[in-house]
Design a protein around this nucleic acid. Structure first.
Lengths: 222, 222
DNA sequence: GGGCATGTTCATCTTCTGTTCATCTGGGTG
DNA sequence: CACCCAGATGAACAGAAGATGAACATGCCC
């Protein structure tokens, strides 16, 4: 689970960060609203912890900005003030929960868990694209009612495609997502995996769900 | 994607250039702030990589100059110093991201991708001109509800037209945007592509969306 | 250690795209 | 009205990108 902490108070944010790291979350930190929004738009966090009072762009602005740009990651707001209007403003801006400073760290942890759990319940473990169904919990894949056996790497790649249906997925995107940094981009490994995925997915003679977009990459057709 | 590298250290800049070329970016290089600013104002780059310390005009000046002239291209600043004030100055001057020398090339690449991606996310993925719709995420193009299949180069050219509707697009502009520097301007390649685009876009007998402007270039009619 | 599954590399084949070329057309100008 | 040039057009070609089949390597389980 990846968490972003945005707070201009470096002492506090480093305490939060360390605490979350000990709980085995992956944590990034930013110290103003601009950096924070940038990071949140570029990376797929599972949760954002956001201070209201910050330089450049305050938490409310940042929150609204994210929602306006279609980022739905759950947001936990922090504030030093406990005025009711603030709470209302925060929730209005699109935050999911609210915590008043000062707080006990355990309180924060509890809220974090609650939000992540809620998120996990909201999104079904199944990703459905056309007649393709992928279950992220059981790692089972079906097309229609035919079960499909995939190796780990094949599964990772297909899941990526299914999370971005219709979008052109470049080779670079696949590299970054499924391999580490020392990937030899001259190899045709990706072509080979596409080939295998296709042969498993499109058993019946219909044309492939994974389309080639020459010079760009591939696309999973919904 | 076209990238401009501005750095007076010729060794470093040639390394950067070669690396980016291998990633299939189109790269120009300048070695002082004056040349750099000139190129950046004349050409439509998608990203500028800019060293802070340079002769004639340093990176900060150049950055401010560009922003003052309405150039919004994302800027990645390089510097040998890692003082916090420098970072602040750079971002204040209008830079979008920051990288401290020395850096691993992969780090540079990651930032470049992030900036380009961010750029892509801020603008809506759909460009609409009349009944023409182009989706930059999926690379799908439609006229009305008829889907249009384009090759890479055709797509690049049409996108350029759609980003400049009603504007006279000269051959030179197309050359610079869709080809590298060793383009043979005596060839009629561009005419051929216009021909193909027209035949794909204007399937029904209506008159072409791409108008010829004799002696000047072409124009996409909204 | 043998055998199986998965990940990776390699060589070859196929298809498509980018480019060139030769020829045709029509508008503007003297 | 005739000429000329910019642009339009259709076809052909060559190289690149991708598809494919098989071999090779590696690690894991029994």
């Amino acid at each position: 689970m990846r968490i972003l902490v945005v707070d201009d108070d470096r002492r506090l944010s480093s305490i939060i960060k360390r605490g979350l790291l000990e709980e085995a979350y992956a944590v990034d930190a930013a110290h103003d609203g601009e950096d924070g929004q940038y990071l949140a738009e570029v990376n797929p966090y599972d949760l954002i912890i956001l201070d209201i009072m910050m330089p450049k762009r305050d938490g409310l602005q940042m929150c609204r900005g994210l929602r306006a740009n279609g980022v739905n990651t759950p947001i936990l707001m922090l504030t030093a003030r406990d005025a009711v209007e603030d709470r209302v403003k925060g929730l209005d801006a699109g935050a999911d929960d609210y915590l008043v400073k000062p707080f006990a760290f355990n309180e924060l942890l509890a809220r974090v868990r609650a939000l992540l759990r809620r998120e996990g319940m909201f999104k079904s473990p199944e990703i459905v694209v056309g007649d393709l169904v992928l279950n992220t919990l059981t790692r089972e894949v079906r097309r229609g009612d035919r079960a499909i056996e995939l190796t780990t790497k094949e599964y990772v790649i297909l899941e990526y495609f299914m999370r971005h249906p219709n979008v052109v997925v470049t080779r670079t995107m696949l590299e970054e997502h499924a391999w580490d940094y020392d990937f030899d981009s001259m190899s045709n490994l990706i072509d080979v995996y596409i080939r295998r995925l296709r042969s498993k997915i499109d058993a019946d003679g219909e044309n492939s769900l994974i389309q080639t977009v020459r010079g760009a990459g591939y696309r999973l057709k919904a």
